[in-house]
Nucleic acid binder design. Structure first.
Lengths: 169, 169
DNA sequence: AAAAACTTTCAATAATTATTGAAAGTTTAA
DNA sequence: TTAAACTTTCAATAATTATTGAAAGTTTTT
């Protein structure tokens, strides 16, 4: 059975799901939904457009738009003759993934690497506990450095590189 | 300046940081901390050991240990002559990453792919909005399938494959 | 310089998520 | 079969995180 779908239904389903996915990855719902809405919109949207579409308050809209700008995935646009700001997001999914990886690397991987570097300095009686500590944190550290380097490479290379890599797998 | 560190200090720092990292990736603090504690412990630990070390309640400990078992990264161990259950986690970091990827794929990527497949069925007047909708969700869908396949490959292959891959980059 | 149009902030509140602890459930030993 | 040892559940509570909305701030226009 083939089931067609109305545009509005599809749009709502997408925005809703993007919000849920965001939540389970530690991104707040409103932020993820604003991003989804901008992804779908051919035109840049104003804060009011966003408030209206997602039924959220001005404060919430403003804060999360700024958040998306901080993540480097939304930008301002000024329209001639209009005083207010409009916002848009890039439609290139690969570029989006690149940017998100880059930011998460900076925000979450770097701090944990700092801790892992620090705790390499534990010393004391070489008992089982200390050995395990050194083994585990050392392994985790080298693994994390590897992943970090990989993300760095990924976030500095172009789409073509990525697709070639995928091909090899 | 070289700064050494006590075992206990290092351990606490690690457990604390692991909890924080977990939180920003949508994993609850207690769960992440229990995992960190087990990673460091040469011996399997009982629920009580965990309650004691992390200063958490029995209910909390129990629920989150079960959660970790559901994720496939902690297992039970029975000690001869002991009635209670002990818990341990694998110390192979690569194996851990594999398992976590596999689970997140199942829990989060699959559902979003289902939605992306569904919304491919939108129809209606072919205006700018609909075109953008089809473009964006279509791109996202094919990108997500690629990533999904990549994770699948990753989670089925061995450490060596992964390190060879890293080398190539 | 005053008003209008717009953006930002933030204390109060709501919603969500995590945690507790005691009671109920289960298994093993006496 | 009773008691003890242990595990699970879950309603109540606490902690955290998200959201609101109105006031304050800023920029532009008149």
């Amino acid at each position: 059975m083939f089931v067609s779908m109305e545009y509005t239904e599809g749009k709502n389903k997408f925005i809703q799901s993007w919000g849920t996915l965001g939540t389970s990855w530690g991104i707040n719902k409103a932020m993820a939904q604003i991003h989804a809405l901008l992804l779908l919109s051919p035109e840049a949207l104003s804060t009011e457009d966003i408030m209206e579409e997602l039924q959220i308050s001005r404060g919430n809209a403003n804060m999360n738009i700024r958040g998306l700008i901080d993540w480097g995935i939304v930008e301002k646009e000024y329209k001639p003759g209009e005083r207010k700001e409009f916002f848009k997001t890039g439609k290139d999914i690969w570029e989006l993934a690149r940017q998100v990886s880059k930011e998460r690397r900076k925000r979450e991987i770097e701090p944990i690497l700092k801790v892992l570097d620090q705790v390499q300095k534990v010393e004391g009686k070489e008992d089982a506990k200390l050995k395990e500590f050194k083994n585990v944190t050392g392994d985790l550290r080298s693994f994390t450095y590897k992943v970090d380097g990989m993300i760095d490479k990924f976030s500095k290379s172009d789409q073509n590189w990525f697709y070639k890599l995928l091909m090899k797998l």
